[in-house]
């Protein structure tokens, strides 16, 4: 995404601090996309290889998951993939919404919907990974 130089009326009127804080947030977001991307590179490709290449997808049964999650390190792995994937993906979707949704009201609505959905799924995913007490 191109980092845009947006200027809001409040910023034009006010001191430079608001402008700076906006720029700071976008800079962190830019940096976050790159760091999370580097980590996801390994997490996502390893995950896909395990569930589709080294094992056939039809063998990823409940027993398969129970066996993997018997090792807490795989739970950590899957949780990191969940957390980073959701944050990286929803921040990416925020860029996309900024680019294509032109009216401020619709944009605010779309973002509110997207943040709520990601947060809800983050909770669902975390509960699934943390509380699973599978027996083999």
């Amino acid at each position: 995404m191109a980092l845009r130089e947006r200027s809001f009326p409040s910023q034009r009127r006010n001191s430079t601090t608001m402008k700076r804080s906006k720029a700071n947030f976008e800079t962190w977001s830019w940096f976050f996309m790159r760091i999370s991307g580097l980590i996801l590179f390994f997490l996502a490709l390893i995950h896909f290889s395990i569930t589709h290449i080294f094992n056939d997808v039809t063998t990823t049964t409940v027993a398969f998951v129970a066996k993997r999650w018997a090792n807490p390190l795989w739970r950590v792995f899957d949780w990191l993939l969940l957390a980073l994937g959701l944050m990286h993906g929803s921040n990416g979707l925020r860029f996309i919404m900024d680019d294509y949704i032109r009216t401020p009201r619709r944009r605010a609505f779309a973002k509110a919907f997207m943040y709520s959905l990601s947060a809800a799924l983050f909770v669902v995913g975390t509960i699934t990974i943390v509380t699973y007490k599978g027996t083999l």
């Binding site: 409940v62 998951v65 969940l82 799924l121 669902v124 995913g125 509960i127 699934t128 699973y132």
Partner: peptide, 9 residues
């Protein structure tokens, strides 16, 4: 995928 895995219970 988060939803389909959550049916593990």
């Amino acid at each position: 995928h988060i939803i389909d895995i959550s049916t593990i219970n």
